[in-house]
Design a binder for these strands. Sequence first.
DNA 1: TCTGGGGTCCTAGGACCC
DNA 2: TCTGGGGTCCTAGGACCC
Length: 485
Amino acid sequence: MDAFYASAEQASKPSLRGKAVVVGGLGPRGVVATASYEARVFGVHSAMPMAQARRLAPNAAYLVPRGGFYKSISEQVMGLLHALSPLVEPLSMDEAFVDLEAGGAAWDETSARLAGIRLRADIRAVTGLTGSVGLAASKMLAKIASEQAKPDGLVVIEPGTERALLGPMPVRTLPGVGPATGDHLRRAGISTVDELAEAGEDELVRLLGKAHGHALYAMALARDERPVVAEREAKSVSVEDTYDVDIHDRGRVGTEVQRLADRCVRRLRGAGLSGRTIVLKVRRYDFSTLTRSETLRGPTDDPGVVREAAARLLDAVDTTGGVRLLGVGVTGLADFTQEDLFAQAAGELAAREAAAPDPVEEAEHESAEQRREEPPAERHWTTGHDVRHADFGHGWVQGSGLGRVTVRFETPQSEQPGRVRTFRTDDPALEPADPLPLVAPAPRRPDGPDEESPDRESPDQASSVPASLPKSWSGNGSGGATSRP
DNA sequence: TCTGGGGTCCTAGGACCC
DNA sequence: TCTGGGGTCCTAGGACCC
């Protein structure tokens, strides 16, 4: 998906279309998650500190990420991919490998290109957003092709042309070559893929180590036999928080670690997992980062056990000078727990847990209590979130402060930017709302194809989109102007 | 300019075992 | 009596990706 978070916000808020939009953390230590292509013109890009983005693009719209909203769009797109092949390997919410051959969706260049064209049209029809497609004979090349296709394009790397295409490219093009490896290679006089191949495998192993050296040499020769693997098991679960100001108080550090341990366990349990190794992460005032870990005799999902392990690990960490980040994670995952096995044998743990309050729920209860005791409920309206007003209908929060909240009333289907109105934050007519679908539910067509029916497997079948296709799938999407939905 | 959050994979040393 | 070789597990750190 192209500039996924930012594009989703633009599709959701017509007044932001064609405008610079930056999605990311809005706190003093926030960074950019995604910048719209309009914002990239100003030099704003992912992972940039938000403060710097604001200097570069002071008039852009700044929004916090709405993970649940993006996830629901992601599921629609992944659904379209699964219709092409059972072999779908998600890389993130907005990117996945698909083995078209395994699904019978393509068997040569022509059928592959057609599948890509249909997929892009389907993505647009179903989600209202644009995605880019890279087609090639391996994962590495498909990924490079999709980068070249962005935004809103499709690129095919034809078999036989790989090395000629790759050769002159900078080494940083290859997935797995980041800033450190890039610098390392540059100091060794290697800056292009051709030079990587010329250096030879032994030299690369000497420079970069075994695994990386062999892998990079193979990639430089366009060799990549890695299969597309669906459904990989999670290997770790972790949570972390960066604080707006460094924490100096040792007691406060302790309570934060307990909170993080509880949050981590909630996620662990939510996924039906347990783990053997507890990891504590500390980033100090000077950005130096350390981890401490402890492996238990058996896997656990018990909040008390994880809390205690995290507390023990913290005991061994010097936090003088303050900490900017704390994190708790669990690895060595299993889908059962030692405690469960004992419980089955003894048949009484469940009863005991029912009698005694679960520390996780207890913690939630406590914090809810604390919230209730906070000064008289001034409702908080988060910029960018959807709301509904009894008289004016659906809109989103454009800003709030000083007891006022400003709302723009528009929906994804609005033809022009909506009207803006300001209310008191405690206006009873105003309430939070869920995001609206980006694409209006299709009117019932008796003979029309139905996205929800999973029964079409042949690429010969009609695609679920109108005949009018976007104009920019001619292959090379990299040069032209961005066309937004 | 001052650096998020959630992950994966690799390396390297030491303990331990056979 | 003065020290082998291989394998696994644990811990810590670092690179990289989105």
